[in-house]
């Protein structure tokens, strides 16, 4: 079925709010999913993978900094989804880059890392260049990178299948580089990779703005079903709370 971007965003906000994401985070999370889908980068497919787990994040410890110096930091996300922890990590990299020119933040134990693209893109708008790299998978390891130049509106994104075997030590890790001095670009050396340019990302966005978003009816139903958690049962009393006669 076809829905608008605003419908998707509103339904996702309710969904995350009902999953106990806190104020500020549920807007961020909804925007991250919408951004990927709007720009042709399969936000809904990734969200479908995250859906069974988003209700569990509330029981996990909050992210914490396990190492920090003036140009770098390491954060443990305690197996949270990037949807509710990655924005703060990018903010920290951003702040350090402004202070030191360039900075690196590594996040451990973070899931759904592709959702970082929205947070990276926001840095471009703020005049910071940013890049990210991560690997994913156990049997077949894929690698991913995204980057945006300072002042730009659209990032590049690459993904590819590697010959690597999974390494227990860097599972679910993500490296973020931010710079206020250097324009960062990234592409994979991997010959089996697929590169999506900023121009293609922009073109995808134009298509979505014109035609809306195609979504599987079952995913749409699931998002709305979870979102029901923020609605209050309708009673005669609650009808009076709307000022009705």
């Amino acid at each position: 079925m076809n829905i608008s971007m605003n419908e998707l965003k509103a339904a996702l906000r309710r969904c995350f709010e009902a999953s106990d994401y806190f104020v500020g985070n549920y807007e961020d999370a909804a925007n991250m999913v919408l951004w990927l889908e709007k720009h042709g980068l399969n936000g809904l497919s990734e969200f479908k993978l995250a859906l069974p787990y988003i209700g569990e994040d509330k029981n996990k410890p909050l992210s914490n900094v396990i190492y920090e110096d003036s140009t770098s930091a390491t954060i443990d996300a305690h197996h949270r989804s990037a949807l509710n922890c990655i924005a703060a990590a990018v903010d920290l990299a951003h702040a350090k880059a402004l202070e030191s020119g360039i900075a690196t933040v590594t996040v451990h134990n973070c899931h759904n890392r592709i959702f970082i693209l929205k947070a990276l893109t926001d840095r471009g708008r703020s005049g910071i260049s940013a890049a990210a790299y991560w690997q994913n998978g156990t049997d077949s390891v894929t690698e991913h990178t995204a980057a945006i130049r300072s002042g730009q509106r659209y990032p590049s994104y690459s993904e590819g299948v590697t010959n690597l075997t999974s390494n227990e030590n860097d599972k679910q890790a993500l490296t973020i580089i931010c710079s206020s001095r250097v324009d960062l670009t990234s592409s994979l050396q991997n010959s089996k990779s697929h590169f999506i340019s900023p121009k293609q990302v922009e073109s995808n966005k134009k298509h979505t703005v014109e035609h809306g978003i195609e979504i599987d009816a079952d995913v749409w139903e699931e998002i709305n079903k979870i979102g029901l958690g923020v609605l209050v049962e309708n009673t005669e009393r609650s009808r009076k709370d709307a000022g009705g006669n």
Binding site: V23, N64, D91, A95
Partner: peptide
């Protein structure tokens, strides 16, 4: 910085 405050208090992100 605010960024560091946000890592320590992520629940305040929206209001900050």
């Amino acid at each position: 910085t605010t960024a560091r405050f946000m890592v320590a208090h992520p629940k305040l992100r929206g209001i900050v």
